[in-house]
Nucleic acid binder design. Structure first.
Lengths: 254, 254
DNA sequence: CGTCGTTTTGACACGCTTCAAGAGTTGTGG
DNA sequence: CCACAACTCTTGAAGCGTGTCAAAACGACG
């Protein structure tokens, strides 16, 4: 494959350096990882439950969902992964997946061999630390999802998810309106919120009266502040410190 | 405080070594950490949202819940922590809590200064790796909770939680019956499952007909296999490999 | 231009919540 | 050691949010 001088993994580095300080050497090493591109069609699996894998993947474009499935066949999306995310970084250490990863839109990923990642994690303490922080940050998002699905009414639930995604895509304004792509269907939204597609549709209709429109993978918001209020959304759990005011690296401190 | 030759943090080491290999030096260093004991009364907070802390804690006895709260005052327990767990290991790196930690029963914890933990994580690569794995494993449990709360009917939801706790307490048999303590009230159960206390009560009544009893913090199960079936429970997500067949340490591999 | 997946809408059913009140249990202070 | 208070747990009746079933309209794509 053609390797441009800018690594395909740059989005991952950008993600990690949001919360962790990586040395030049570490960033360089990450850049030099093998990153084989791969396209995945909508609704196709990137990882299946129980399947062993030799690669971890990073999302380059599109939207990936972590899909849990009950024995009665009901689906629950428990996490959404956007470009720069590494949904299965755990697989480096636990190669057998316990939930499926599925493309919710046409998706481009790059695959990184576990072998190389292990070598990196073994060599660069700062990279291990960065993955640790990322895993911990992910856990806090999961925790919010439990609360969202468990305790909020349908409309609020959907609004909250929209707010989270706006924030993670870094398109959330301080006020006013905005528009962004959220490439999923209403059925996907239902799976992510623990509702039925029919009820999602009705709730979206209700949201439309509040100036929030979701149509064919695009979100249109008239008044961000109002949406945040109806969504009961507080972004602190996302831990995204865009100013990186106080990143502290432990690895060299001792 | 009196420091016996067996560290108070041994349960944490036992937990970490379930999935990660720690060298003698690393285990010794963990043992020598300052661990100030502290008792917390029922329903009292161990950590509050937005509060900064200088200590991470390990549960010694009792049950701790991670509590999310919506603006309308509804509570959702998104995780349960049992002896040996370190609910706020993330705080080492992110000292401001985004969800509350609350004692669901009388609880004993030990508090470990962040400063010391940071020194350890900075020195011992294997410890960082172990924390990383633990965080990733926790995330998979969260993922299952999203599915549990989002897609299962009340009775199944409660049964699933009981199964998980039996498994984590390592009291789950291969068949037959069992009894164990799960020191929480029906209201706590409701908060953990996203139901109302009233409906939890009714569901417990229904479970009683299936030979599963929950009374004042004690669980009595006639037939484990039957419960697993009604709970739709598959323990793989808990990643507990009691045989530790294939723990691989990355830290020294490079 | 036809096909298939997605969105929309309606009517109805049901699981869970709400409100309310009483019984059981635990803890506490006199 | 009893009496009272404060939680828990339990049960009933009624209401509502969400699910289910069904069918039609719409949109994307080959």
């Amino acid at each position: 494959m053609l390797q441009s001088n800018k690594s395909a993994l740059q989005p991952l580095i950008d993600r990690l350096t949001l919360h962790s300080m990586l040395s030049e050497a570490e960033q360089g090493a990450l850049c030099r990882l093998t990153a084989s591109p791969r396209k995945v069609a909508v609704n196709h699996d990137i990882a299946r439950v129980g399947e062993r894998t030799e690669y971890a993947c990073m999302v380059v474009s599109g939207l990936v969902g972590r899909v849990e499935q009950t024995s009665s066949g009901e689906r629950q999306i428990s996490a959404l992964y956007i470009p720069g995310d590494m949904p299965d970084s755990l697989s480096v250490v636990q190669p057998t997946a316990t939930s499926a990863l599925q493309a919710l839109s046409p998706v481009e990923i790059v695959r990184v061999p576990h072998k190389e990642l292990r070598a990196l994690v073994g060599t660069y303490h700062g990279i291990t630390e960065a993955f640790w922080r990322q895993a911990a940050a992910d856990a806090l998002v999961f925790s919010q999802w439990v609360a969202n699905v468990g305790r909020r009414p349908a409309k609020t639930r959907i609004a909250h998810l929209i707010c989270e995604m706006a924030w993670r895509y870094q398109v959330a304004p301080t006020s006013g309106g905005l528009a962004f792509n959220l490439p999923m269907t209403q059925t996907h939204l239902a799976d992510a919120t623990g509702l039925t597609p029919v009820h999602v549709n009705r709730s979206l209709k209700a949201l439309r009266d509040d100036g929030v429109e979701f149509r064919r993978g695009a979100v249109l918001i008239d008044d961000w502040t109002a949406l945040v209020a109806t969504a009961d959304f507080d972004p602190v759990y996302l831990q995204v410190d865009y100013n990186a005011r106080q990143r502290v690296r432990i690895a060299d401190a001792a």
